[in-house]
Write a protein that binds this DNA or RNA. Structure first.
Lengths: 154, 154
DNA sequence: TTAGCTATCTATAAATC
DNA sequence: TGATTTATAGATAGCTA
């Protein structure tokens, strides 16, 4: 439909591809709207351009969420399994990170030290010493700054 | 497009509606396929007839699941059920906990102290002192135990 | 680049089988 | 009903500004 027939294969010229995308995207979204009105159908359309921009349509009086729920019931395909797994995996990962930090924190507070090797204890002591050193530096600097401020205000 | 122009409103004659649905459904699915090939777009289409029958399309090399995941990331809209919401909520919660601990750890190591109030610095110092005290107690006990062991082995 | 403009191609409404 | 056939409305490819 247009000045010439085109073959259905990837348009190599990127400008043309973008223009065609924009036109056809509008076409599909319009058709989707029309069929949903004309035929009382529930329609959900999600389109990503190759640049990753999102366009979507969903029939009035429903929602993508509802349509997809129906899709799952109807097709038996589970859409969320993958997502589910990845979420669970992320939770596990973060929880592990959490546990590690929890333990490190407790150690730095001098708790739960019984299971540690002497070498580990030494490392913790070094960390604490280091922390104290840094902190004291900071406190000294603060104090100096305060003194200077007071001095300047005289 | 056809022998006569039609108004875009629900087709009352149920036979016509069904026929039109069938034709237009094919049209949309074809267009979806075409744009995905021509323009390298990711497309997902789900259509339910008014009778509840399901038709769908998804671009090759991806899956509805992946497209919808991307949709959510991109639009910020949440499509899935309560379980996913609760998983997402848990991730948020754990991440916050994580951040808090991260900060506390850095503080105990004497890092990122600039934004802190003197009072907070003092509290950190107390925590560090406390940790050192506990740790040293532990080290002393360990040493004693070791000595006792050696003593007993004599 | 983005927005119109047609000539042409496609989709499809109505008719026919 | 369902498939096939037109005549026409609608979509759009290639231009142009």
């Amino acid at each position: 439909m247009g000045r010439g027939k085109i073959e259905i294969k990837r348009i190599e010229n990127s400008t043309n591809r973008q223009v065609t995308f924009s036109k056809r995207r509008n076409g599909i979204l319009k058709k989707a709207r029309e069929i949903s009105v004309l035929c009382d159908a529930e329609v959900g359309v999600v389109i990503f351009s190759s640049a990753g921009k999102l366009y979507d349509f969903c029939s009035p009086k429903t929602s993508l969420s509802k349509i997809l729920e129906k899709y799952q019931t109807n097709s038996g395909k589970i859409l969320w399994d993958e997502k589910h797994k990845s979420l669970s995996a992320e939770i596990d990962r973060i929880k592990k990170e959490n546990d590690t930090m929890q333990i490190e924190l407790r150690h730095l507070k001098g708790e739960d030290l019984n299971s540690l090797q002497p070498k580990e204890l030494i490392m913790i002591e070094e960390a604490l010493d280091n922390g104290l050193t840094n902190l004291n530096e900071k406190l000294v600097i603060n104090l100096l700054n305060q003194l200077i401020s007071m001095w300047l205000m005289l």
